[in-house]
Nucleic acid binder design. Structure first.
Lengths: 339, 339
DNA sequence: ATTCATGTTTACAACGTTGCAATTCTTGTG
DNA sequence: CACAAGAATTGCAACGTTGTAAACATGAAT
């Protein structure tokens, strides 16, 4: 009839639509939907009912413009492919945790590590998300620094060395290394080697330190295979082959990356090594592929899906303003012994 | 001094900031930034200069509220893990194609196939993205139907059987099957078997049909291994083992899924089969893991990263209103023969 | 000088939401 | 029955943007 009716007739259900239907004002409806306690119960019921019946969903742009709240969680996706299926599981985990909330997930794929500061800068400047999840955290991670400085909500998959605490969820790498070493010791190994990649992450340091400590404690000869960082799978495979035929090779290997494990095992087997007899190997497992491939090999599992969920829950609580010291957690490694 | 100066002083650069700096009106600045041709060149320069200097970026919420344009591309991420690393590569591909545009990527992980209609419904009802990318398309895909009905921009990774055309980018599965069969024939195989999973996708039908045709043409005995759909990797491995010891087994196998290939090969090898001699195998490759693992096996590659990029470009063009018939493309399989 | 066309800039309203200040409605009390 | 006090509701402005209609400026033609 008049303009108002026309407006509501064409399509979307807004606060105005509900206002018209209930005969209340826009303000009242808005207030009511947000749980205004000064409102009469009758009014609140009426509004709630109408909103439900009409299938009202608040317009994200309206809310965002008015309040600045984006209702978006951003995942900065590292390009690393050490952990097979990492991205998918992480995203699924976040998705599961987000389900039923107002939040959406936006993913920002990263191509080079040194761009990551730009990415964060952009998010900070343009308030394009309410919170950020980062992975592959470094001891003095520039992204963490930036977001702490800006007092911007984030959570990192991985710890840092910063004095000021920040929310994180991390795999307990130290326990991983310790468990692995002890397992190898229990199998009678004398000389163990740690094969580990990306030396820029905090994770790297945690593992190496715990590994050396555990090896010493168990009276084993412990070495770290350095310089595997930029290796292609083919090169890594070659390295496994070399290792197989080398004198005085270790009798126990711990590998922290699935990608490297595959290549390494390929090389070792090509070199005639029978894993589980002459040489023990334990790898960090995230994907379900390797257990299929090497059903006889021991592994220690990180549940990336669960990590995604936990990271998200921590982040959302941080966004709600919860104390940071309550927002730190570690995931226990899950031993998957095969014998 | 007055309100205006205060507003611009605190933080974000908006049109108003530029207006104040240049002494022009809001409208002029807005118009100018959008390339208003009626404006004096001098004015346009002045505005452009100020915008650059101040680092102006249009507020997404403002634009979205006013125009309805979200500048968001949504990826509905299927939970399937047949193709290892599929999600990551797809996302990277989309990310690369999006880079430098106004678009952001939001990812909606799917947990069960039958929920997918809800997901699309939600996007359609709430206009939460300007366009959608879907994967694992089915012949009469309900999602496709819904979006076509709503005339909503989308692109599918995979074709359908609908009469009305829609944008898609797909792997040329028929060529894949044909190439694989011919390769096996060339290696002297007489009896070839197709191992293929998810029978709900269009892809499945395309491959099976082309496979049977090619086998017949080459005078080979062609069979399709049915019922592998819901198999766990362990069961699949078992199946490989059975196959290895079975009488009258095929001498050539074509596998369309990396996950299944790994399990299958594991079983076959456990059964004592030496691949490449008694039995030939060709698999569809997307991830780089299998070539590391089985350096001697032939494969045919789909570049998922490139697919993500192509899908995105098609979608953006669709959003711009380009004719749908121009927005369909196929990716040629890339043979990776190892001998 | 007035009018007209043309070139250039601007005011205004609207998108959907929220928070504050202000208004209206109910009561109970004197 | 007037009136304060409290309960309940509402108007208004603002967030940043854009499209339309209108205003203004300039100079040429009358």
């Amino acid at each position: 009839m008049n303009q108002k009716t026309t407006a509501s007739a064409k399509g979307r259900v807004t606060l105005r639509t509900i206002a018209e239907v209930t005969g209340l004002s826009l303000s009242t409806v808005s207030l009511s939907l947000r749980g205004g306690t000064t409102l009469k119960q009758e009014t609140r019921d009426k509004v709630a009912e109408a909103a439900l019946a009409l299938g009202y969903v608040p317009d994200r742009a309206g809310v965002r413009l008015r309040t600045g709240k984006t209702n978006v969680v951003a995942l900065v996706l590292d390009g690393a492919e050490d952990s097979i299926d990492f991205a998918r599981q992480m995203i699924q985990g976040i998705g599961a945790a987000i389900k039923g909330t107002r939040y959406h997930l936006t993913v920002i794929p990263e191509f080079e590590r040194n761009q990551s500061a730009e990415t964060i800068r952009y998010i900070l400047d343009n308030r394009t998300a309410d919170g950020v999840i980062i992975t592959h955290t470094e001891p003095r991670d520039a992204r963490v620094q930036m977001m702490m400085d800006a007092d911007f909500p984030f959570v990192s998959h991985g710890r840092t060395e910063f004095y000021t605490p920040h929310p994180y969820h991390d795999f307990h790498s130290e326990d991983f290394a310790t468990m692995a070493v002890e397992r190898l010791a229990g199998k009678g190994c004398k000389s163990v080697m740690l094969v580990i990649g990306d030396d820029s992450t905090t994770n790297y340091h945690n593992i190496v330190t715990a590994f050396m400590k555990a090896a010493a404690r168990a009276g084993l000869d412990g070495t770290v295979l350095e310089g595997t960082k930029g290796l292609t799978p083919a090169e890594m495979r070659k390295l496994g082959l070399d290792l197989a035929t080398r004198d005085g090779r270790p009798d126990g290997i711990i590998s922290d990356s699935e990608m490297r494990t595959i290549a390494l095992v390929g090389g070792l087997q090509e070199g005639g090594v029978v894993l589980g007899r002459e040489l023990q190997l334990i790898y960090k497992q995230t994907s379900g592929i390797l257990p299929t491939l090497f059903p006889a090999l021991d592994s220690i599992r990180e549940d990336v899906f669960a990590a995604g969920g936990e990271l998200t829950r921590l982040l959302l609580r941080r966004i709600e303003g919860e104390a940071i010291t309550d927002l730190q957690s570690l995931a226990e490694p899950q031993p998957m012994w095969r014998s």
